[in-house]
Nucleic acid binder design. Sequence first.
DNA 1: GTGCATAATATGCAAGCGCATTTAATTACG
DNA 2: CGTAATTAAATGCGCTTGCATATTATGCAC
Lengths: 132, 132
Amino acid sequence: MAATEAEQGLVEQWRGMLALHARTQCELDRALHGHGLCASDFEVLDLLAEGVAADGDCGYRVQEISDRVHLSQSALSRLIGRLEKDGLVDRAMCPEDRRGVRVVLTAKGRALYGQVRPVQRAVLARMLADAG
Amino acid sequence: MAATEAEQGLVEQWRGMLALHARTQCELDRALHGHGLCASDFEVLDLLAEGVAADGDCGYRVQEISDRVHLSQSALSRLIGRLEKDGLVDRAMCPEDRRGVRVVLTAKGRALYGQVRPVQRAVLARMLADAG
DNA sequence: GTGCATAATATGCAAGCGCATTTAATTACG
DNA sequence: CGTAATTAAATGCGCTTGCATATTATGCAC
């Protein structure tokens, strides 16, 4: 039946994606672990670093980060807490909405990002290049 | 530069994959949760069910499952333990290598799989159809 | 067969995650 | 204004995960 064939195609697509995702995520975690980061940490740093050019003052609201990163709100809150504890980001109250929190890379965070970014890009190149 | 462009392409490919994977995995977990399963549980059941046709006697070695499922050996061991506790699989010693363990679907496990499989397929169809 | 390296699972443990709830600030409505 | 409904983020909690290690079984040298 055509329906079954289409279904089988979806299943294979999904299995392929699971495999590639797991392999890549695992490699990323290993590569970043030496720098004290996990893959989710890097996702957030990557977003923060790309947001502002060089002046480290505007940053993102937690909610904006939450829209772009695939974590629950609670997981993100704790992740930012860890980054802050390690001195990689600062948390500051939003002046315009005092419920909100603004997150900014510190100099240390920016430096670590600069160091780690090529590592992450290399893993992506190695894992995604052929098996796309 | 061409190198930077290629790199940017990889980054976008990876972000797209992260997004699609996270959305789908999350939907799967939600859909299966009502049946007492998580997405990893289903992966294992799916493999076990496809392995043998109807006679439930040969099953898989844990190591064979480990090759096909993207979990650490310890996580898989515990997952099988949970399935066993819920009466969905049986664990039996391998006659030919008594270090090994053979895992087989029980009748209950096969019944649950039959019930849950269309649910999982529907989620895949819904999530992967357009954004492939 | 005894001893030693290796292999297949299981288990102790700490860390990260999601769900539900809490706390604090804003908005809406009488 | 004051009170209820809503929103932003943080926290309690249980569960799953991976790493390191323990346990049991095999195989090989002697």
